[in-house]
Write a protein that binds this DNA or RNA. Structure first.
Length: 276
DNA sequence: AAGTGGGCCTGAGAGC
DNA sequence: TGCTCTCAGGCCCACT
């Protein structure tokens, strides 16, 4: 399940492999993604150069010719990159395959189709649409404890959900929110308006730390960019609480077990003793 | 306005 | 073994 560190890994892999390259053509196996793929996508992107690849939150934006293509990996999305098209092995859920003029190839695979690939301007999906309401990047200096505190101190919703709200901070997902709250020692059930400035500071610091560690772990997988799926970076990182309900709290002097609860339909993992 | 919950989708894993 | 059921997750959107 790609979160910001995995998306960053994918973006890096694409940059190394196809930035500056020209698209020879593409094959679309499915048009009925969550946002429909335009029928003329191939015409519009063929023979166009990939000028720039950037990331905003969990979205990757590719400036191709005069178009802006927006890619989101959802939860099962991957980009597989091949230096030579002859190395490509088709998979069942490869929805869009990009063939490059230099002989390379990359494929957007997404079994659960929670992801998206669309061109800016189509059907009102302006390139800025997902971004206009989006909060700061969690790793930017702009995202400080003060900024975070001001964004949440009148909100009654649980802090867990507020951290998942991309309008407050863009790029945190369920896993890293659980980890950051554990690191900060804050109970995920508490309302935003109960969080002190000092606690907001801690949450912000911890968020940045868990993301930076995960990016560092994922970065090592970039050497083999044919496997640019982010999965190695994700699995190499050992989680303290995520998906560990029933296990002992990692803190040696704590005797509690990690609990799993459901908040707004999403799993939350936390230590009832360490997180107040 | 803010908060909640359903829908989307498939594969993995549990339980029978 | 093989079936059925449940769950996972980000995001959008409808509803309160």
């Amino acid at each position: 399940m790609p979160e910001l560190p995995e998306v960053e890994t994918v973006k890096g892999g694409l940059e190394r492999a196809v930035l500056g390259g020209r698209i020879k053509g593409l094959r679309v196996n499915r048009y009925d993604l969550r946002i429909p793929v335009p029928q003329d996508l191939g015409q519009r992107l063929s023979a166009q150069t990939i000028h720039e690849i950037s990331r905003r939150g969990k979205y990757i934006i590719m400036h191709i010719g005069d178009s802006y293509a927006v890619l989101h990996l959802g939860m099962s999305g991957r980009i597989r990159i091949f230096a030579a098209a002859s190395d490509y092995e088709a998979r069942k859920h490869d929805h869009i395959i990009f063939e490059m003029e230099d002989g390379g190839l990359f494929a957007f695979e997404d079994p659960r189709r929670f992801g998206m690939f669309y061109l800016a301007g189509d059907d009102g999906w302006a390139v800025e649409r997902p971004f206009s309401q989006m909060g700061p990047e969690p790793l930017d200096d702009e995202w400080t404890g003060t900024h975070f505190y001001n964004a949440i101190n009148k909100r009654k919703a649980p802090i867990k959900g507020l951290l998942l709200d991309q309008a407050i901070v863009a790029g945190l997902g369920n896993i890293y929110v659980c980890e950051a709250l554990y690191g900060a020692g804050v109970d995920p059930r508490r309302g935003g308006d109960s969080i002190s400035k000092a606690e907001a500071d801690k949450i912000v610091v911890q968020s940045k730390q868990v993301l930076e560690r995960a990016i560092a772990a994922g970065g090592s997988t970039l050497r083999d960019y044919q496997k640019t799926d982010g999965s190695l970076g994700y699995f190499q990182y050992g989680f303290q609480v995520y998906d560990r309900d029933g296990h002992d709290c990692p803190l040696a002097e704590c005797n509690q077990k990690i609990l799993r609860i459901v908040q707004a339909g999403r799993s939350t993992f936390y230590c009832p003793s360490c997180q107040k």
